[in-house]
Amino acid sequence: MSLCEAEKTFILHGVEENFRIDGREREDYRPMEVEIGIISHAFGSARLRLANTDVLVAVKIEVDTPYPEKPSQGKLDFFVDCSANATPDFEGRGGEDLATGISNSLSDAYRSSKAFDLKKLCIMKGQKCWKLLVDILLLECGGNLYDAVSLAVKAALWNTRVPGVKSVGIDGKNVELNVSERLNDCVPLDVSGAPVMVTVCKIGEYCVVDPSAAEEKCSSAALVVAVSQGNITTVLQGSAGSLHPTTLMDSLGLGVEVANQLNIALMETLQSAPPHFDVGFLK
């Protein structure tokens, strides 16, 4: 998307007046839709649509050996795929830079044991653990990717059920797992601490949250804050541009406040979600 000077000025003036181009105030989000369990062959999945941004997340689980330096922890891997459906720029390997950026920031945000406890994914110390593979597919980019991805990942993890292990047997060096075959015999994950990311964009003199694609073009600097239960787990200064320390602290404060509200809203939505209907993309 390319904007001319007049369009940029229009957006800038809108932000100054606290009346953005789509009628929102500076701290408002666009409407969001979340749907869980739409991929039948994954252990957990979610699709989140934030206005024009569309993200699909699927969680697969494998049995793996823990890292030697962390024998009592499971593994959590993020993989982002930018589909060319979103924009022709992503064709071939075009989206890889963005994909690596997002997956790295997610791993950073989930690294703290307070944010996500990997110890619960351990089956047998030093021998076997569960490996959660979180695959994120970007289907449409309408701005504010980080927020949408983090919310979708949280929803997908909330929906994930880890298979129940009945017993573990050791025969020499072989470890045999006896996984329960009953579908109901699964353990949900604890995602209360899973971080929520908020992008704070500086447009002109003011900071806004949830920038649309056009607003991202006008921003002079952007800050991504990952917040877990009121604590900041990651701060990432994306895009070119610089921030004054005072502005930086203000944006962090704004980010944390908004993230807390978002987190509450997401958890409420997930808990009150109606029983699953097979809708997906057919709506």
Partner: peptide
Amino acid sequence: QFSMAVFSTGERKRRPR
């Protein structure tokens, strides 16, 4: 361009395309 999501098959794919 044909692309398959990594989670589209029973066994997880390494690369989408």
